[in-house]
Nucleic acid binder design. Structure first.
Length: 584
RNA sequence: GGCGACGUAGCUCAGAGGCAGAGCAAGCGGCUCAUAAUCGCUGGGUCCUGAGUUCGAGUCUCAGCGUCGCCA
């Protein structure tokens, strides 16, 4: 019986290239988890897309003197291609500036209004008289009301770090025209009634079924809800870039980015269903109470995914599933510093994929995944993990066994003789290890899952050194055949255990082992047309996938293919070169 | 300022009421099938600080310090 697994991944702002922190934080863990479930025979729906709205995009557009849509048109394809290259197996990676997403968002907005989860109210906001524009936080600066720093931003002071409302700024200046001909005006907006959702959310979080939530997520959420300080939160803004409010009289306002972005999980599920020609299929992941939904995010996003989005779903009141788990990751720093474009400290994923293959990155970022604490990635560590762990421990294990079998046993899996105590000891380790790794993938403990698999690889190396088939073959060829057979079984099992993390090289290994089929499906770019225009998307097609989540039953006699090394060693000199590059 | 997480070997990180762990780095030895890979042995600790609970605390409680995130 296959389970329905919804893998929802944070929607990246489409104002630049994604860096390795984004990948380690949400995209890689979600993909590993999805691939595990695909192999396990479960029905996975993995969705996300580019977040095309919000001030990050409009600020970028203004800096370059182009339209927000042009910013999206530049970065969306780049991010889509990068994720294809890295093998992030989205059933659909789309974007938010689509007819489908607009429609789903507007429908939810109207439903929220009808169900009184959203209310109307006025709020004071800064207005530039010279520009005839409302000034969102990013478009105003002035003197900090706390420390007196001149040049404080609209929402936060760079000098003292305190946050405040823009109307508290002393002598605010408009960032469009630079002048201070600004006044506070009342403007009408819509608000999500989080205060009313506080109790239902608290009931949900404390229903006794959330023991698997990570401590940071659970405690953060619980403390926010038990404090009962949730307040109405504006879901519209005085902007021109964004989804229109589907009511007369609000032409100069738009739905604010955070509200529409989280709805993307639902809209992308619906878009996927339409694209595959089964328009109602999304319901299997959203309305079946047995379906489980996982939201892969960074720790900065816990509020939106453990409180606000579940609140929106409750307010929507159409029986859609609330999150089963919100496995938020911490942050990945590099060489002891935060990744920051403005501070010229950056590793752009698409950039480094030009120099290093996907699987070494997937390995290094999984081994250093910030699952419970901030992690410090270093280039030295990247080289070491690649050379010492991937190449030496795992790649070499596969290569030495396959090479030996291919050369000395006529290119076939040798026929084993009777198993001795050591053979049995090795074989008996397979199933328990397999079950431990399975449990760790299920629990979204991916770093540990990888670690456990690598431990089995060490055991296999140890076994080979104990049996010494290269000596056995001279005195007792049958015993050598048995040893090689046992080692091949272990490697074949490791191929499966590591495939979620290393899909490309495990497929290569699968082929060397003599199999003809594909472990996974294919990841393709697609241009999806709507009535007015079309957009680029990434789509996983699992039709050809034949991988099975089971320990090896590799048969004796199976014809092998001539193996080639799975990984390349890296020169230690790249460490300095890459650190140089990071400073731009 | 409030809330949450994190603080463990030289480095990067696991762990968790019952003899402090892994990998890397250092030293010695074995092996030669393999990408000079692998396997064994050895050294290394104020588990951030202080107090409390307990037969027993790295683990639980409280306070403080530091880092990160969210909010004001």
């Amino acid at each position: 019986m296959s389970e329905k697994i919804l893998v929802s991944v944070a929607w990246p702002y489409c104002n630049g290239d994604m860096h390795i922190g984004h990948i380690a934080g949400a995209y890689l863990p979600s993909d590993i988890f999805a691939r595990y479930h695909r192999l396990a025979g479960n029905d996975v729906l993995m969705v996300s897309g580019s977040d095309t709205h919000g001030t990050p995009i409009t600020v970028r557009a203004e800096e370059e003197g182009i339209s927000p849509r042009e910013v999206v048109d530049r970065y969306h394809p780049r991010n889509v291609q990068m994720m294809q290259q890295l093998g992030i197996s989205f059933d659909l990676f789309t974007e938010t500036d689509t007819e489908n997403h607009w429609a789903v968002t507007q429908e939810m907005f109207l439903r929220h209004l009808e169900k009184k989860a959203v209310y109307r109210a006025t709020m004071p906001q800064l207005y530039c008289i010279d520009c005839s524009k409302w000034l969102a936080d990013r478009y105003v600066e002035g003197v900090c009301p706390h420390c007196g720093f001149d040049g404080a931003r609209g929402d936060q002071c760079d000098n003292c770090g305190r946050a405040y409302d823009a109307i508290e700024l002393i002598t605010p200046r408009c960032k469009y025209c630079g002048r201070a001909n600004i006044e506070v005006r009342e403007t009408e907006h819509f608000f999500l009634d989080l205060a009313a959702l506080n109790q239902p959310l608290l009931d949900w979080v404390s229903d006794g079924t959330k023991a698997h939530w990570r401590p940071n997520v659970m405690n953060y959420t619980l403390s926010r809800l038990t404090s009962r300080e949730l307040r109405g939160r504006a879901i519209t803004r005085d902007l021109s870039w964004g989804i229109p409010i589907p009511l007369p009289g609000f032409d100069s306002k738009r739905i604010y980015v955070w509200y529409d972005a989280v709805i993307g999980y639902l809209s992308a599920s619906k878009e996927w269903a339409a694209v595959v020609g089964r328009p109602e299929a999304w319901r299997e992941w959203w309305q079946d109470p047995e379906a489980r939904s996982y939201y892969f995010i960074g720790k900065d996003n816990i509020d939106f995914h453990a409180i606000i989005w579940p609140g929106m779903l409750i307010g929507y009141d159409r029986g859609l599933n609330l999150p089963y788990d919100v496995p938020a990751n911490e942050y990945l720093n590099v060489e002891g510093r935060k990744l920051s474009k403005s501070r010229r400290w950056m590793i752009v994923m698409r950039d480094v994929l030009e120099r290093y293959a996907a699987d070494p990155w997937r390995y290094a970022l999984t081994a250093s995944m910030p699952e419970s604490t901030d992690v410090n990635f270093t280039w030295d560590e990247f080289v070491r993990r690649n050379n010492e762990e991937l190449v030496a421990t795992w790649g070499n294990l596969a290569n030495r066994v396959l090479g030996f079998a291919y050369k000395r046993f006529e290119g076939r899996v040798p026929e084993p003789g009777d198993f001795d105590v050591d053979d049995r000891a090795m074989l008996d380790q397979i199933q328990p290890a397999f079950e431990r790794v399975t449990g760790l993938y299920e629990a979204v403990k991916l770093k540990q899952a990888l670690n456990e698999a690598m431990t089995l690889a060490h055991e296999a190396n140890r076994y080979l050194n104990l049996k010494e088939p290269w000596k056995q073959i001279k005195q007792d060829p049958a015993a050598a055949a048995t040893s090689v057979f046992v080692a091949l079984r272990v490697i074949d099992t490791l191929k499966t255990l590591l495939a979620p993390v290393l899909p490309f090289t495990c497929q290569d290994l699968h082929t060397y082992l003599g199999y003809d089929d594909q472990l996974f499906g294919e990841l393709r770019l697609a241009t999806l047309p709507e009535s007015e225009r079309s957009h680029l998307a990434l789509r996983y097609d699992g039709a050809g996938a034949r991988g099975r989540w089971a320990a090896s039953d590799l048969p004796a006699g199976q014809a092998l293919r001539e193996p080639k090394p799975l990984f390349l060693k890296l020169e230690p000199t790249i460490v300095e070169e890459e650190i140089e590059r990071m400073m731009g």
